[in-house]
Amino acid sequence: MTPCTSSRLLRLVVILILLVLPFVLSSYGLSIFTKVLIFGILAMSLDILIGYTGLVSFNHASFLGISAYTVGILAVHGINNFWLTLPAGIIAALLLAMVLGLLVLRSSDAYFLMITLAFGQMLYALAWRWRSLTGGDDGLAGIPRPEIGLPISMNDYHNFYYLVLIFFGLSFYALSKFIRSSLGRSIIGVRESESRMQALGYNTWALKYLAYIVAAGFAGLAGVLFVYFNGFISPEDLSWSLSGMIMLMVIIGGAGTLIGPVIGVGVIFILQNFISAYTERWPLFIGIIFVICVMYARNGIVGYLLKLEAKRRRCNESPGSKEHL
């Protein structure tokens, strides 16, 4: 079997598993998977920044949060039509990115990380303080599942899972198209060498700004799904600890691949569920996982697997054939 057909087969199997999951999992198990898919979208979008553009952004929860709050506030006012709240949430995240991007993209490296962290905390404080709008630290509770204009109830967790699955699939497809496009290639060029890109004639600031906005848009989508999944939104959902958690998931799963972050989310959430059943020391475990990753799998789980695969292929290869991708 050629690598191409085997990877196509693998993809088909994964899609099939995702489709039949509601029939085999308990409602609890399915809710974990739903959450994995929602945070998978979020992690993929962050990876556009970290893995593809080389921008280590530390306030990605802000985009999830502003979108979730937008939807929550609309719900409080009785607006619950998914086809209204979905664009509203995404637009809120896009607008935030358009403004923040102007401020944070002036700096790079560690400064970029610090300034994004600072803005993230500002938004966190704002959600905390602006009680009349956000409910302060009580958050916004009792947000019902959306109406999607079809005779299908989203209160049924199977149906909601499929809704999330559809958006996950669309996001995965769209993002993989994006990074394969010539624009996506240029963004990877910025990661590889910004000065060379400039010397070639690329407006690298504009490329970074674009990547920032695209990433925020998908984070906004995740925010909409998240608030409907959770039925509740509080300042914690745009805190730096959530931003940091997503960042860890991206790095552990494998930055610079689309599937890596999703695997990172899955591994962390599933481990979290197992381990927190036995002990309170969950953060200790995530610390250990992170250290192991940094020591043995610099490019995350997916990076490690790819390395093994490359090694295997090199062993099988005839010594004469030099050309490989």
């Binding site: 290639r185 060029g189 590889e192 060498s193 060379r196 400039q198 010397a199 070639l200 004639g201």
Partner: peptide, 30 residues
Amino acid sequence: PYHRARLGLGRTFQKNNLFSDMSLLENIYL
């Protein structure tokens, strides 16, 4: 810099400054 490049100014660097994780073809493509 990118403006100047578009006016026809090209340069190389003293220390290699390439898109090292990309193939040669992708480098040239960019």
